[in-house]
Simulated scan of single mutants.
Amino acid sequence: MANLRAGLIGLGMMGRHHARVLRELDGVELVAMADSFGDSHGVANGLTVHDKVEDMIAQGIDCAVVAVPTVLHEEVAMQLAEAGIHCLVEKPIANDSESGRRIAAAFERMGLIGAVGHIERFNPSLQSLRARLEAGDLGDVYQISTRRQGPFPARIADVGVVKDLATHDIDLTAWLAQSNYVDVVAHTTSRSGREHEDMVTAIGHLGDGIVTNHIVNWLSPMKERTAIVLGERGAFIADTISADLTFVENGTLQTEWESMAAFRGVSEGSSTRFALAKREPLKMEHEAFRDAILGKSMNVVTMAEGLETLRVAEAVLESARTGGVVAL
């Protein structure tokens, strides 16, 4: 079978990584590029960098990756849908949910694979955690907590921390639990002088009663990416920077320390850090997109799922604006 002919729109900080992975991917050939600002990171390697998406489409491609600023997602994705080209668009799916609905509807109408780049689903620690939750290793799940903080990335100019970073946590939380959000309440602030928020704290409930909380900011001098799933038998701790997964089980030993024995909650048991095969999440994401196009599997983050994540992000911003609980 001939290789899928792939195009890449957007050659910025994320686009350069997509270019590298596309060139490494079996069954895919990167043949076309477009970026109105040119090839700032020198990734073209002899390919013509088109100013316009339609000129890139004219080269004849089967699929494309969209890594342009969020405000341009709809314009570019709709051009690809009209041309019958499968699309992996970076997260969030669009700048707002109305735009996201139009994109998702267009790809469904054309019978095309439309995927959203919520890359955390392909992190080895979270993939292992999801499998262990499905196997019932934790029993009932009570709470999912995430922390995602670090210095401000200069590449982000068109959205705040909620749509850029918190969408990772919203998506991975609903995916791990296999349950959607039913309400959220949140507070945001902007301390860096930018137009958009750079810090958010959000609390929510999922449809199955799981409590969630998310701490996300661009103001921290240290980088942290952690998800903790607390349940009946203990807690899983996933560090998505190192791709490590640890399980701390509930203790079973009786304590002879009188003041501690009076506390009738759980006690700390054994801790296990699992040995995991650690493959690059971006490559796994591209493999899933390729296999969906070829009809081998459907493990991509669908545009419908990407749209639901964006709806929750908008509810977070609405709650921060009004000070109330927002139902979804």
Rank of each mutant, 00 (worst) to 15 (best):
F37H: 05
Q149N: 13
L307R: 02
M199W: 02
L25A: 08
A304P: 02
A261F: 12
G193L: 06
G10C: 05
H41E: 13
D158K: 06
P124K: 00
H41S: 14
N213M: 10
A313F: 03
L245V: 07
A106T: 03
I237Q: 03
E280F: 13
L276S: 02
L310M: 06
A115F: 01
Q79F: 08
D62G: 15
E258A: 14
A202W: 01
E280A: 11
H17F: 15
L126Y: 08
I241N: 09
F122V: 04
S270V: 09
S259A: 14
A131V: 11
D158A: 07
C63T: 08
D137I: 11
A243F: 00
N95L: 14
A174D: 07
A131R: 12
G15H: 03
E195D: 13
R279F: 13
A157Y: 11
G269A: 09
E305D: 14
L80W: 02
L47F: 10
Q143M: 13
L176H: 00
R225D: 12
A104C: 11
V312M: 02
G251P: 03
V21D: 01
Q143N: 11
D158M: 07
V71G: 00
W218R: 04
V68S: 14
G114H: 02
M199K: 00
E268L: 11
D208H: 06
L11E: 02
P69H: 07
H196S: 04
R321P: 04
L253I: 03
E134R: 08
E54M: 07
W218L: 07
A304V: 13
R23N: 12
D291C: 10
Q254C: 04
L4R: 01
I156N: 04
E134G: 00
R290C: 09
G324E: 13
R279E: 14
I57N: 03
N45G: 09
E285G: 05
K278Q: 15
E82I: 00
K163E: 00
L112W: 04
E82H: 09
A235Y: 08
A238C: 08
A202P: 01
E90N: 12
A83P: 00
A174K: 04
L219N: 15
E108T: 09
R20A: 13
A67I: 08
A166L: 15
R311S: 06
A32N: 03
M298N: 15
H205N: 11
D164V: 04
I93G: 05
G323T: 07
D291G: 10
G7A: 04
V301C: 14
V43S: 09
A83V: 01
